[in-house]
């Protein structure tokens, strides 16, 4: 996992991410002197730490190429609370879950959620990681019904369990399929071919 931008530690200023304006370099605290994506991200992380738990956010970066999309990684135990926070928090009110993607990162599995609020246009991408064995991530289907089939697809293809999901069963593969095809260690050999 090389070349990923440095992890954000809220106390130290970020080196490569933000625009190089003099005012910005002074804005280490939470006052919104200049409203940059970076400062908003820092504020978000602070809010999450305050509202949910101290260790909820593992990582927070700005995805430059993707239109300055704030991207955070949260711990799976807190994911449901974070999701609810994004849905009800006034500034964010993310009512539209755009995309749920499962990724096999080698040593662990992760699911990426892309949220957006249709009124305020604030977007966020959330990564939630879990182990390869006995992997589970709380389901957000009660919050956004659109996650229903998306999570079924991730379960089917990657084998991540979603406790709280109303009807977790395979969606693409036949019901009696063994294995999870999208995993990197999936053995696709078909005895008949």
């Amino acid at each position: 996992m090389s070349d990923k931008p440095e992890e954000l530690n809220v106390q130290s200023p970020q080196t490569e991410q933000t625009e190089r304006t003099p005012i910005n370099q002074e804005a280490e605290s939470f006052e919104r002197a200049v409203d940059t994506p970076q400062s908003r991200l820092e504020q978000l992380v602070e809010q999450l730490k305050h509202d949910i738990a101290e260790d909820v956010v593992d990582e927070a970066i700005i995805n430059e190429v993707n239109g300055q999309l704030p991207t955070i990684t949260v711990k799976k135990e807190h994911w449901l609370a974070v999701a609810r926070w994004f849905q009800v928090e006034e500034e964010w009110s993310c009512d539209y879950l755009r995309n749920v993607a499962g990724v096999d990162q080698g040593d662990e599995l992760e699911v990426v959620y892309h949220l957006i609020s249709l009124q305020t246009r604030r977007e966020i991408a959330v990564h939630v990681k879990t182990e390869r064995e006995q992997s589970w991530i709380p389901s957000v289907t009660p919050l956004w019904p659109t996650a229903n089939w998306n999570e079924r697809e991730v379960y089917d293809l990657l084998g991540i369990d979603f406790p709280g999901h109303p009807d977790l069963r395979r969606i693409m593969m036949p019901d009696d399929w063994v294995g999870h095809p999208l995993r990197k260690d999936y053995d696709p050999s078909d005895t008949e071919v």
Partner: peptide, 25 residues
């Protein structure tokens, strides 16, 4: 592409089609 990820989306006749790529370089 350099390592990173991107989620691009456009309006297809059916709705929002998106492409999420994770690249390792």
């Amino acid at each position: 592409p350099p390592a990173g990820e991107v989620y691009a989306r456009i309006e297809s006749p059916r709705g929002e089609i998106g492409c999420y790529i994770v690249s390792k370089g």
